[in-house]
Structure formats: C-alpha cells, structure tokens
Design a protein around this nucleic acid. Sequence first.
RNA 1: UGGGGCGUAGCCAAGGGGCAAGGCACGGGGUUUUGGUCCCCGCAUCCGGAGGUUCGAAUCCUUCCGCCCCAGCCA
Length: 565
Amino acid sequence: MENNIKPVNFIKNIIREDLKINKNEGRIHTRFPPEPNGYLHIGHAKAICLNFGIAEEFGGLCNLRFDDTNPVKEEQEYIDSIIKDIKWLGFDWGDRLYFASDYFDTLYEYAVKLIMKGKAYVCDLSADEIRETRGTLTEPGIDSPYRNRSAEENLELLERMRQGEFPNGARTLRAKIDMAHGNLNMRDPVMYRILKASHHRTGDKWCIYPTYDFTHGQSDSIEGITHSLCSLEFEDHRPLYNWFLEELEIHHPQQIEFARLNLNYTILSKRKLLELVKGGYVSGWDDPRMPSLSGMRRRGYTAESIRTFCDKIGVAKRDSVVDIALLEHCLREDLNKRAPRFMAVLNPLKVVITNYPEGHWEELEAVNNPEDPSAGNRKVPFARELYIEREDFMEEPPKKFYRLAPGREVRLRYAYFIKCEEAVKDENGEIIELRCTYDPATKGGDAPDGRKVKATLHWVSAEHAVPAEVRLYDRLFLKEDPSEAPEGEDWKANINTESLKVLNNCRLEPNLAGKPVGFICQFERIGYFCADKDSSSEKPVFNRTVSLKDEWARIQGREELRVKS
RNA sequence: UGGGGCGUAGCCAAGGGGCAAGGCACGGGGUUUUGGUCCCCGCAUCCGGAGGUUCGAAUCCUUCCGCCCCAGCCA
C-alpha cells in the first residue's frame, strides 16, 4: 500500500465504537457473499475491498461464502472465476471458504423449529395467488387460508415437500408474521420453495431450496459474523433477518447497508453484462472493454490500482455515480510508477535520414523508467530509415503544434535532433515519406551548443522494428448513464460501436518482442499497453490499457469548441 | 396515499453546535530528452428550501421540496 492513510467512513466509525464497548468480545468478522451466477465486476471490488479491508485493518477475519441457494442460475465456472478474481485482487480468506449450501441441513432444522413455535406454515397457494393476496404498497394483504395449520400438519407437509411428493411450485413454507405489515418483506415471506433441480454442490439431495431471505442472515449467524455489510436494497430485509434471528435465538450479526458503486459510461448489472456476453456484443466476460475484473485484468488494470480506487471512492449511504476519470487516474498513477517504457509507432510514417550513412546502424542508450532508476537502461537500434508517428508531422502546423513540420527541427528521443527537409507525396497528394537530416553532434538527444527544440518524438528503426497488432479501446457506452435509453429502444442502443479499433500495421522497438501475456508497459508518449493472450510468436498483440494524459489533444479539443461557437 | 433510506462544489467525500478536510475534474504557472510525471496557485461567504432554538447551526427542532429502494417461490 502506497499511502497508509486509510480513509474513514461511517462503517469504520461504527466498528470503532463497537470495539470500544467490547461488543462481540472485540471480534471483527466480516464476509463477502457472492452468488455464483456471474463474473465479478468493479462494483463487487468495492464490497470485497470493504469487507476484507475492514478485517485487515481491525485485526479481524473475512470469509468467502457463496450464497448458492438458487441451483438453476448457479455454475461451477462462476465459482472458479470468483475465487480467481478475489485472489488476484490480493485478498485471502485462509481456510474459510464456505457455501450457503453447506448449511442446508441446519436451515431445515431452523425451519422445523419455527414450525414448532407456530411461526411458520406450509402454504398451498400458487405463486400467482401469493402475489394477489400480498396486497399492495398502500393496502394490506390478506391471510392465507393455510395460515393456521397445526404444527403437526405443517411438519408432515414440509417433510413430504422434502421427499419430493409435490410438483414444483405446489407449496411453499412461509413465515407467519403479519400480512398487514407496511414492509412487504414481512407479509409472510416464503422460506422454502419446491425446486426439482440439481444443485452444483448438493446434487439431487434436495428438491426444496431455502430462499435467500431465509438463508443469508442465518448463514452469517452460523459463521459468527459480527458485521454483515451489504448494499442498500437489503435495508428493507433487515427487519425480516432480525425476526428470523430472534425467533431462532441464534447469534445476531449487525447488518449495515452501504451504497453500491455506480460508474458513468459503464453498466454494472450482472443481468446486462450477461446479455452483452451472450449477445456477442463483446468477446466474452474477459473482453477488455468489460467492467468485469477478468476484463479489466486482460485490459491491463492492476489489482493495486483497483484497490486504490476503492479506497478513494469512499463508502456512504447515498446513491452516487463515480466519474470513470477517477478510476483511470488511479490506474495511471500506479502504472506511471511501475511500467517500463518502450517506443512503439502505431501509425507509421517513414523517415529517411539523408545524411546518415547507408547500411549503417547503431545502438542508443534509453532509460527504462524515469520514475524508477532501479529499472535501468536498454539499447535501442537506430538506422537511416525510421518510422515516426504520422500525427507527429504536419505540413502546415497551427501555432500551438510544435512537433515536426517542414524546415523544423525536433529531437528523436534518446537519439538525435533531426530537421525535416522535404515531405514526399504520392500521386494522391498523400505524404508517404519524410526526408530529414540529423545532427551527429546531438547524439543522445542533447545539443552541445545549447540549441533547444520544442518537441521530442518517439521512433523506431524501420529494419529492426517488430510488426504488431494494437487494439485501442474506448468506452463501451456513449452515454454517461447507459440505462437512459432513447424513446422506444433499450440500453443496448447506447453501445459505442467504435469501442474497439484494431491497428494492424504497428511497429515496436525490438525489445518488445516475445513479452509474456499480461506484460504491462508504457509506449512512450502514447499510453499504457498490455500484451494480450491473442499474441503469437510471429505477431504480438497489445491492448491499450489507458492513454497518457494528452495536453495537445486538449488544446485541439478546445480549438474545435472555439470554432463551433 | 404504505414502509425503508438519502440530500455538503461538475463528480466522489470528510465533518454531526464554534464558524466548510481530501481526491478527481477543470483553469493558470513552473520544471522536464514523454504536450507524461512532478511542483506551485485557483476552484462552496456556503452545506436541498423556509422558519425556529442558540452568543454562535452544515451540525439541534419544525416544516416543505427532491431523489432512490420495496408488491420474485431472484439475490
């Protein structure tokens, strides 16, 4: 951790107070409880950092528990990916990997206990009938006709439900609370439903499954959790969880709700992300444009940058939308310190140094990372024919453009000053080559006579360079709030169809050959890039993780605005 | 018209009777062999509105307004 100044938030304040009064004998025990029905995304990272972070900070423990109460949606693939992603973020749950399904037997006993206390009953109403009798937001519901069955009858019926005697949906076990309660969750909620589906862990042992409401709180209780942190939408469920815990007379964790993360230009709904994957709008859960942790990892995000981001956004109860610029800031801040620098030309423009001896080449010394002296130096080949970035030359430069132009001198990084003598064009008037001269006295990039140039360009030797593919990513959605759809369309209308640009004619300095998948570096003056798994030995593929901040682009943008107005 | 929450700068977010932290974004300047980094400076006389209590309020009280969540046998 780079800065040890941990931000404060209302949850930590509560915990400090609890510690002060020695609540739970001073124990702090949290948990991260994902449902294995999708891949983790940056929003989950907030909850993970919060739960594991609090345990770390207060000398407590944090469990990983899969809330797997719905066999029809859950899969082993998701479990594997979730475990991988949390480990990648750098958190550890020791041997405390649990599953709500581990508690199915206990939960069943709890249900029996509630029946015996007269606090639960088997209801024969169909799903539709339950909905119809639940009432509305403003009107009370009406009691189920099965509400007053005897404990014996309920016990027998529940057992027969468990034995698989009734078809799916035929009966449910319901808590007997209050059909007139202002909180809909308290209107005799369903505790068990008949679901003849095989579970990824318990197989065909069960054909009734507890609902999340009848599972979550008790699972926390069983694990001895002291602080159950969850998102705002469960605030309404807290009274119900409390009711179960009190009726069951078991350990009572304290639930605290906080606002989940929202990011502009981003969708963080598992359902919609699944739709992007299934609909082929992206290449998969790990498409570098996805906000999934696997996608971000492939894109080149570091775990450290994500953790810093989670620290910086804070934790509160108000709904908010964080600016994606903050995430990118955290990324750049981390990458600036650690990414070794290389030169790569994305849109090559040939440069011939006319006064440089033909057939000759030399090696020049380059610094690997100006932010980190320990990163050392490397050699880069320089020759008569080079490539520079097409946009680093302008035939008729505007006043604020101080890169290469006819008659103008610039520095080639770590190499020489060169002066543009001529721009060679093809029959269409397109510039295909620059004829330049160099000043041998400026080797390394310094002019002995103190002469200054306004720009330093990156370059690559034409004959030594490695051809590569580079993928440039842009935001996946055009609107700040992607869910705000145009009339008659849905959120997918906001997908940015230009979010991926593939450049096939890029040239990398030779040092970039053969880098392993996941290798992260900076292409000087352009941005941070990461070797993709699609790389082959013949042709490396790099993903642009994030661009460098670009003052020139900003100036141009401003000029455009001025012209328009 | 029921229940539960929330309203501090463009975006996050501390602060919970003593007179507005911090970060991002944005603007200006300096350094610079990355128009990167780094460094300086600026950026809420005001805390959803209106009343009230108080020597003193963003913080307490009253009231109004706005926004979010809840009617799955999803989580």
